[in-house]
Design a binder for these strands. Structure first.
Lengths: 190, 190, 190, 190
DNA sequence: CATTAAGCGAGACGGTACGTCTAGTCTTATG
DNA sequence: CATAAGACTAGACGTACCGTCTCGCTTAATG
C-alpha cells in the first residue's frame, strides 16, 4: 500500500508526555487517579491523540513499564552460583519494591487480577522476559557443573522468586537482603 | 439516646441479597462489573441501603469473602510433618485457584495493589488468619521434634506458600499436587 | 479522487467534487450531516484543500447554490400583468419547494436564523437577485400602464411572495398553482 | 404501576435554571452557542439531569418558548375589523422581532429547516395555536358581517401574516407599523 | 393500641470520566 | 506549489456510576 500522507507521522513528543503523565499520576494519585482525561490534561495532549495510539490506560502503563524495564534488566553476573543468585534476587527485590517501573508493575499485576486479557499480555510480553533473566544464574551454574544437570530450572525459579513476589504482592513485608540471602542459602542445601 | 424506632433493625434479607449479588457480578462480569448500582439493581435493594451499611464495594466483597472463607479454614491434620504439609499446601492451592472465596480473594488482592488501605485491612483481618493456619503444621512438627526447635517458622511459611501465591497471582500457571509436593520435598530435604 | 500535485493552480476537479459531495450529503443526511470531514471523504479530497478555498461549510453550500441558481433565474415573460405574475409566482413556488437549489436555499435560510453573517451575505448576494426578478413583472406592468405609476413595488413584492415563503419556511403547507393564482387575483383586484 | 419512590420527584428549580440558561445562551452566543454542556454549567445542573428530562437542546428551547409564549398570546380586541387586524398584526410583528420568545421562535424556525421532526412538532404544537389567534379577528369580522361569509379565512391569514414572516425570516427588513397597516389596508380593498 | 422513628425501595440530584465525533490547524512527500 | 494523507489540540456529545439527598411505606417496641 502506497503511503502518500504525512510521513512525519506520530509525534514522539506527545508519546513521551503521555507516558510521563501516566507515570506521575500513578505515583501521585494511585491507579484510580490515572484517568485518560487526567493524562491528557497533564500531558497537554488531546484525548483523541491518546485514543489514537492506546486502547486503554493499562496499555499506556504497559508501554511506560516496557520503556523503563529495559534499564533494570540487569545483566547476569559471572561469579559462582551463590554470589550470582544472591545478587540477582537482591536486585529483583529492589526492582519490585523501590524502582519506578516496579511501582508500575505492582499496579499492573493488581489490575491483571481483574482483567484476564491484561494478565495474558503481561505474562507473554513482560514476565517471560523477567523470568528469562531469573533463569540465567541457574543456567550458568548448571553449565559450570555447580548444580546438577537434571535440575528443573523453572521449578527452581518458582522456589527462589516466589517468596519475593509473595511478600511484595501479598503480605507487604519488606524484602531485605537477609531474606533473599536466606532463600539462596536454603536453596543451595543450607 | 432513647431508641423508640423500628427495633427489628437491619434487614438480614437485604444483607444476604447484596452479598450474593456482589459475588455473582464478580463471577459473571469481573471486578469492574461489580458496581454499587449493579448490585442494588440485581439485589432489588436501594442504593441507600448499601451505602448505609458498607462504605464501598470492596467492603462488600470483603464481607462476602469473610463469610465464605470460614468454611475453607481447614483444620490441621495430625499425621507426620510431610503428610501435614503436603495436605495443607494442596488445599491452599485448591482454595486459591478453584474455590469461590479464592476468586474473591484474587480480586481483592489485585485491588489491594491500588489501595493501601484495603491492603492493610486485608492483611490485618484475613491474611493473618490464613497465615496462622499455614503455621500450624510447622508448629506441630517442631513440637513433635520433627523439625529443629530454632526453625524460623515465618520464614519457612514464606518459602512454602510464596511459590504458590506467585503462580496464582503472577504467572498464572496451574498449581498441581506435584508442584506442592515438590515444594514440601525440597523443604524437608534441605 | 486521484489527484496528486499540480503546477497549474487550483484543481477544478476538486472544486466540483466538493460541491457535489456537499449537495449529496445535504440531500441524503440533512444539514447536520454535511460535515467538512464527510465532504472530504466522499469527495476524495483532503480537508486542507477544502479549508484552503472555503471558510466554512455554509460557504460551500452557498457556492453550490450560486452555481445552480443561475439556471433557475427564469427570464420574465412578456404577456399581460396577470399572466406574468401567475407564471412568475408559480415558478418561484416550484423553485423553492421542488428544485435542488431550492432545497439548498431552505437549508441556508434556516442556518441564517442562527448566523447573522450568513444572513447578511445571503441577502446581499442572492436574495437581492431573486427580488430583482420578482420586481420585473410589476415593473413591466407599470411601464405598460397596467398598474399605477406610483405603485410601491417593493411593498407589492412583499405582499405577493411573502405568503409563498411563509408556507415554505413556516407552515410547511404545499404551494399549489391555485394558491399563487389566488394571490395574484387578490393583488390585481384590490 | 405503583410509585413508591421519591414523590417530590422532579426539581422545579433545576427545570427553571435549565430553561433560563438555555435562553441566556441563545441570546448571548446564538444557537450554536447553546450546548448541553454549557447549559449544565451555567444552570449549575448535572448533564444527566438535562438528559433525564429533555431529549435534545431543541426540546429545551421548545419548552422555554412554550412557557414564554403564553404571555404573548394576546387576546383578541373587540373593535371593528380594521382596528382588530391592525392591532393584531402589529403585535405579531413585535412578538417576532422584539420579544424574547420571538428570538427563540426564529432560532427554532431556522432549525426546523434542517430537522423535519422538529418542523412537525413546531407546527402541531405551537404554530397551530399562533394561527388560531391569527384567525380570531377575521372570524369575528365575518360573524359581525364586516367580511363576506364565504371568506377563506386560512387563505386570508396567509396573505396577512405571510409578508410579516417573510420580512422576519428572509429579508431581515424591519416590520414597522406602517407596513402592517398597509397590509391591512390592501386586504380591506384599499 | 396508637405513636413514632429506624430501615427500606425508589429515584432525582450534582458530579466525574468515559469513549466518540467533528472542527480547524499543521506538516510532509508527491508530481 | 496545490494536492492527498493524516496527526495534532480542542471541546461537545450522550452514557455510566458515583455518593448524597429526600420521599412515603412498613414495621415493632414504647407509652
Amino acid at each position: 500500500m502506497r503511503h502518500t500522507g504525512n510521513r512525519h507521522g506520530r509525534s514522539e513528543a506527545a508519546r513521551q508526555a503521555v507516558l510521563e503523565a501516566a507515570d506521575d499520576l500513578l505515583t501521585e494519585r494511585g491507579f484510580a487517579g490515572v484517568t485518560i482525561e487526567g493524562i491528557a490534561t497533564r500531558a497537554g495532549v488531546a484525548k483523541q491523540t491518546i485514543y489514537r495510539w492506546w486502547p486503554s490506560k493499562v496499555d499506556i502503563l504497559l508501554e511506560a513499564f516496557a520503556d523503563d524495564m529495559e534499564e533494570h534488566l540487569f545483566p547476569p553476573d559471572h561469579g559462582n552460583v551463590g554470589d550470582d543468585l544472591r545478587a540477582h534476587l537482591h536486585r529483583l527485590a529492589l526492582f519490585l519494591t523501590e524502582s519506578d517501573p516496579g511501582e508500575v508493575f505492582r499496579a499492573l499485576a493488581g489490575q491483571a487480577q481483574h482483567d484476564p486479557v491484561l494478565a495474558a499480555r503481561l505474562r507473554a510480553d513482560y514476565l517471560s522476559r523477567l523470568r528469562e533473566h531469573d533463569r540465567v544464574p541457574l543456567q550458568g551454574a548448571v553449565e559450570r557443573g555447580e548444580l546438577p544437570a537434571d535440575l528443573d530450572i523453572d521449578l527452581a525459579v518458582d522456589q527462589l522468586v516466589g517468596p519475593i513476589y509473595y511478600r511484595v504482592l501479598v503480605t507487604g513485608d519488606p524484602v531485605p537482603r537477609e531474606f533473599t540471602d536466606h532463600l539462596v542459602a536454603r536453596f543451595l542445601h543450607d
